[in-house]
Every structure is written in structure tokens, then in C-alpha cells.
Computed example of a mutant assay.
Amino acid sequence: MDRIVYVLGAGFSAPLGLPVMSNFLFKSKDMYLSDPEKYEHFDKVFEKIQEISVAKNYYKTNLFNIEEILSILEMSEFLDGLRLKDEFVRYIRDVIDFYTPRLGEIHRPGNWDDFVFGRGENNKLFGFFVANLFGIKFREHDDRQRGKRAFFADISRNRNKYDVISLNYDLVLEGYSDFINENYQVDRPLSFIKSQYKEGDDSPHLAKLHGCVEDGNIVPPTWAKGRDSGIVPAWKAAFSILEGASHLRFIGYSLPDADSYIKYLLKSAVLKSQNLKSIDVICIDSDGSTKKRYDDFFDFPFYRFKNCSVLDYLKGLLETMPSKVAQPFKEVDAALIERGHEKFMKS
């Protein structure tokens, strides 16, 4: 059984409307203008950003990029022996929560297998990706004698093991797993293992290196990410995940130069890796710089880079999923991600 690890960057969630570092400030201002009273606490954040604009008089400074803004602020706080103010953590949490999509109520027409995750193309793409991680097969049992329809989400046996390392705060993955729990009969509730690494558990692990909006442990995306002890368990889990990986896949992550801590995590984990077979990267690269960073970092004969969007990748996976088995049983097997992945990388 292979163990496949996905490393998800901000580009993974961006198609759903989640902000990335470059547009975080703009999106937060849109929120504020939509309801100034509700988001009154944003005023302090915007005032602080205005205060540091003096840096532009001396240095090239991008005050539209939230990572650069928070890095400047946190450096000053760090030198004063303080932590970044709570209002900035609350600000980040509120913006992420606001733009996280909510899955609507599901309706099941006769061709329910076209609407496993309700309506909306993105819901279908991201929903099936999450279902793949758990190895789900959806099926309908039409009990015509009783005039009832029942819908099940069965976990496939003898499948590959999937784990996720995320650099995002959002609850996109958890939202789709919760949707399955709420709308299908399951063998057991689907849940990512997030607290610690558990060897032998067939549920996917999810290590969030910057914290999560769910538990309020948000580590600002700055140079000082490693100073927060609250994320140490997630980093330990990520290390264990990486050292056991058979296949490593980066999705929507550009490997920015500032993220040296990620590079050292990968390098330290590979020291104990016994079975790493491939490294694949799926990311938009408009000017060739992203591929160059990966090319300069990886020295492995089974590394591949694919310049494409996250949506293109998810569509490629979905196209290989068989469906529409004859009534009275109708099935949609989402546990076939490997065939779609390999076909996409070779296309």
C-alpha cells in the first residue's frame, strides 16, 4: 500500500474565494465596507498598516501583501519582547472565516450521482477530492418495496493511504468531510486526524503548519512562524507524515524564498524516508520563476512539475471516476485518484 502526501498551499483554496497573501488586504477592506459596524475592530489593523507606510520612503515595501505587513510589525514586537497583537490574529481569523464557502442543502434528483455534493462545479471538484482522501464509494439503495431511497458513503478497503500537510488556516477540507457525514450514511463519521500522528490509522492525517481558524491557534504568516509553541504538534505530525511518504504532491504552493522553514522540514524528514518514489508539483507558473525554485530545490530523478491551475488538476481527477451503475444500485467510486493523477501528469 502506497502512502501519498499532499502539501497544499494557498493556491489550493483560492478557487473557492479564499484570500491569498497578495489580495488578503483588499478582501478584508471589502468586508469592512460591507459592514463597518460588525468589522469595526479592523480599524486598528488598518491604522497600524498606515503607520508603517513610512518604510516606503526608504525601502521597497509591498504594503498590499499581508505577509510583508505582518513581518514588519512582528519584528518590532519581537524586539520589544512582545507577541503580535491579538487584533491581528482576530483579523486573520475573521477574514478566513468570511470567505470560506458554506455548502448548501443537498437535493437529490433521479440522476443524484451528478449532484453528490449538491450544485456547483467547484463543490463537485473539491468534494470528490476530499472523498478520494478517505477512499469513499457513494451508493444509493432504492428500496422500491418500501418506497424509500437510502444513500451511503462507504470506505473502500485495501486502498492507498492519504495524508495532507496544509499551509492554510481554512476549513475547506473539513467542510466537505462534514458534508458527507451529514448527508450520507457512513460506516463511521469521517474525520481528519489533526491532534497527533497515529501510525496504522487509515483515516487521513491533516497537519496545519500555521494553525487553524477552528481552534483559534493562528500563527501569522511571517518570518517568525516557528516561535509559536502551539503549532509544534502539527509540525511533529508533518514530520512523521513526510518520512513515511511514498509519493509527495505539492498543490497550489509556489515554494516562496521566504519559506525556508518548509525546505528544512522536507530535508530533515527525508533523512528517515525509506520509500519515496515520486515528487509532483501542480502550480500555476506565469513567468517560470516557480518552476525554477522547485528545480533548484529538488535533485531527484522522479520529480515532475506541471504548470496548471488547481481546478484543471481536480477536473483531471474527476474525469477518470466511473459512475452510473445500473439501478436499483447506483454507485460513484471516488477511491480512484491514482489513475487520474498519473493520466493528468502525463498529459
Rank of each mutant, 00 (worst) to 15 (best):
M75A: 08
G147N: 14
V164S: 10
G127Y: 03
H141L: 12
F129L: 15
E68M: 07
F134H: 00
D143T: 02
R93F: 00
L167Q: 07
F64E: 15
N111M: 13
R83K: 15
K161D: 09
R139L: 14
R159K: 15
S156Y: 05
Y99I: 04
L167M: 12
K161S: 12
L103P: 04
F78K: 14
L103A: 03
N158M: 11
G81S: 07
F115H: 15
Y99S: 05
A153L: 06
N123V: 01
F152C: 03
F134M: 01
L79G: 07
N132K: 09
I165P: 13
N123Y: 06
F134K: 01
R146C: 09
E68S: 07
R108F: 02
S156L: 12
L79K: 14
D114P: 01
L73K: 00
R83W: 14
D114N: 10
I92E: 11
R146V: 03
K137S: 13
F134R: 00
Y169V: 01
L73E: 03
T100A: 00
G104A: 08
Q145E: 15
F115V: 13
L70H: 06
F78M: 12
K85V: 01
F115T: 12
I92G: 09
F152H: 05
G120F: 02
F88T: 09
Y91L: 03
D163K: 12
K124V: 06
R108W: 05
R149W: 03
I136N: 02
G120P: 01
G81C: 04
D80M: 14
F88H: 13
L79I: 12
I96N: 09
V130R: 09
N160A: 13
N65R: 09
E74W: 08
I165K: 10
R149F: 00
Y169F: 13
N158R: 10
N65A: 13
P101S: 06
E140H: 03
D163P: 13
P101G: 07
I165R: 09
I72H: 14
D94R: 09
G127E: 06
E77P: 08
D86C: 08
T100I: 00
A153D: 02
D94G: 08
D97H: 09
N160Y: 15
D94K: 07
V89C: 03
R159Y: 09
M75G: 12
S166G: 06
F151W: 04
L73H: 02
R119P: 00
T100L: 02
P109R: 10
E67G: 03
I66N: 00
A150N: 11
F129Q: 10
F152P: 03
